[in-house]
Every structure is written in C-alpha cells, then in structure tokens.
C-alpha cells in the first residue's frame, strides 16, 4: 500500500542567509543594492545621525535633560502612551473595517473605500482644522475637547485610520474561504474559526499596519497642533515640544528629545517586527 503513494516529500527550502550564498549577487542586483543604500543614507540615515549627534553633542547633560526636565518627560510620555493606545485601537478597528470591506457587500461600499483613504489625502493641518471645528469650543454636535487628551487621541485616530485597513485588506482578500469552511465542517463555530484560523493568518499584516500607525502617531504634528491647545505638562506632544524648543533656540534639548523619540520608535518597531516575523513564520 505504501508504494502506491510513494511521492517524493518536498524538502525544506534552504534557509536564506547561509554564508556561502549570502553575498553572491549579479552585477545588476549589486548596483540595485548600492543605489538603495545610497538613497537610504542620504534621505534617512544622515539626518538621523545628525539629530543624534546634535542631541548628544553637548554631552550627556542635554540628553539627560530630556528625562529630567518634567516638561520634556511629560511630552514624551504623553506621545508614547497616546501612540500605543492609538495603534491598539487601530489594530482592532482597522481589522474590523477591513473585514467588512472584504467580506460584505453593501450599498455605498465604494464610497467607504474612498473615505478610508481621506486621512492620507488630507493635509494634516486641514484635518486639524476640521477636528477643531467638530470638537472645538464652538462645536454644536460634540463636547469641547480642545486642550484635552481625548482631543489628541481623536486627531491621532483620524490620521492613522487607513494603515491597518490597507495592510490587512489584501491579506484577507487572499485568504481562501474554503479554509474557514473546512474549520466549520470540523465543528468550529464562527468565533473559534476566526480566532484559530483567520487571526493567525492576518496577524503579521495587523502588526505591520499597527507599527506604521504607531510611527505616524509618534511624529504627528499638523492635526494635533490646533486641537491640543499645547498646554505644557498636559497636552503638549513631543513634536510640539521639540518645535517650541527650536523656537526658543534650545537646539540641543530639541535634538535630545528627538533622539529619545527615535530610540523608542525603533524599539517598538523592532518589537512589532519580531512579532511579525514570528507569526509569519507560522502562517
């Protein structure tokens, strides 16, 4: 009986990055790599290095200031916590919206597709103005959130909405529904099927979208500047604080705060990237 099914098992593909193969490249891909590294260096690495150099240039005093100065500390803490909260909210809501867009058909779906991208298309200061009209002191429909933290959260939620939706949507589209049908025929209810079959498949995309949203929220300025009211210790986000420091000619302090933001962003992105790698390996 066994020889009837003696197909050859598929071998594990060799793991990439083995020393022997790693650096063997064609001239074309070497050139490509060169251009990519150069581009990345000029646009990203050089400015980042400059910021770090500036921040630590006046010794560790300026750098430590970013932690000891309670105004800087509050601004960083607010920014990080708000960004984390917004990424988590986006992870959930973005997934729900993507699910609805992919799996359901309803009148006005095309319009919703466009509306989702609006925060990408709108200049952030315009978004800030819109939010101020809606949640500001003269609003007829909503509470006055100017100068409050909910105001900041709403602004950040607005500008980061599309990230998770747009990363999860194509993955959901590529998911075969027969996998869910198989789970159902094996006795799994809709919730179990989602948790055990769908969720593992979309987790990398959710993480990657959330990481993008987090990065965006950390640096957001335009949409927050109006609604936050810029109250020190209360609603001053890090980008506002840095801007004001520069205005006050305190460049090293600004750069030090920027460096701290940079490090936190890198750490969070790396953690999410690790999560992504881990879940993608299993998917």
């Amino acid at each position: 009986m066994s020889q009837a099914v003696a197909e050859r098992p598929v071998r594990r593909p060799p793991r990439p990055g083995r020393p022997a193969d790693q650096f063997r490249m064609s001239p074309l891909s070497s050139a490509g790599l060169g251009v990519a590294v150069l581009w990345l260096s000029i646009l990203v690495l050089l400015p980042l290095a400059a910021v770090v150099a500036k921040g630590t240039g006046s010794g560790w005093a300026g750098f430590a200031n970013a932690f000891t100065d309670s105004r800087a500390y509050d601004a960083i803490k607010l920014t990080v916590l708000a960004s984390l909260g917004v990424s988590i909210a986006n992870a959930v809501m973005g997934t729900v919206i993507a699910w609805v867009l992919v799996r359901d058909s309803f009148p006005g779906k095309r319009i919703l597709e466009i509306v989702i991208d609006l925060p990408f298309a709108l200049p952030t200061i315009v978004a800030g103005l819109v939010l101020l009209t809606l949640y500001g002191p003269n609003s007829a429909v909503a509470p006055d959130w100017q100068g409050t933290r909910p105001g900041i959260i709403v602004a950040l939620l607005f500008v980061t909405l599309p990230f998770v939706v747009r990363t999860v949507e194509p993955v959901l589209l590529s998911l075969e529904t027969d996998v869910e049908e198989a789970a159902a025929s094996l006795g799994a209810g809709p919730f179990t099927t989602f948790r055990r079959i769908v969720l593992p498949a979309i987790t990398p995309a959710v993480l990657s979208g959330s990481a993008l949203a987090f990065g965006r929220a950390m640096g957001e300025y335009g949409s927050v500047v109006l609604i936050s009211g810029q109250l020190e210790h209360k609603t001053e986000v890090a980008s506002l604080y840095i801007y004001k420091q520069i205005q006050d000619d305190a460049l090293p302090e600004a750069a030090a705060t920027a460096t701290v933001l940079l490090i936190i962003s890198l750490l969070v992105m790396a953690a999410m990237g690790a999560g992504q790698y881990w879940s993608a390996r299993r998917a």
């Binding site: 027969d178 079959i197 593992p200």
Partner: peptide
C-alpha cells in the same frame, strides 16, 4: 443544520490546509 453541527467530513479541491 449548520455545517459545524452536521458531523460531515469535507475535503476540498485545493486542500484547505490550515497553513500555520
């Protein structure tokens, strides 16, 4: 009766493997 309570084994053309 929904599929989950029919106690029916189903095999699909494209395997429908749980990839993860």
């Amino acid at each position: 009766v929904p599929a989950q309570r029919r106690n029916v084994g189903f095999v699909f053309q494209h395997y429908a493997a749980f990839k993860h």
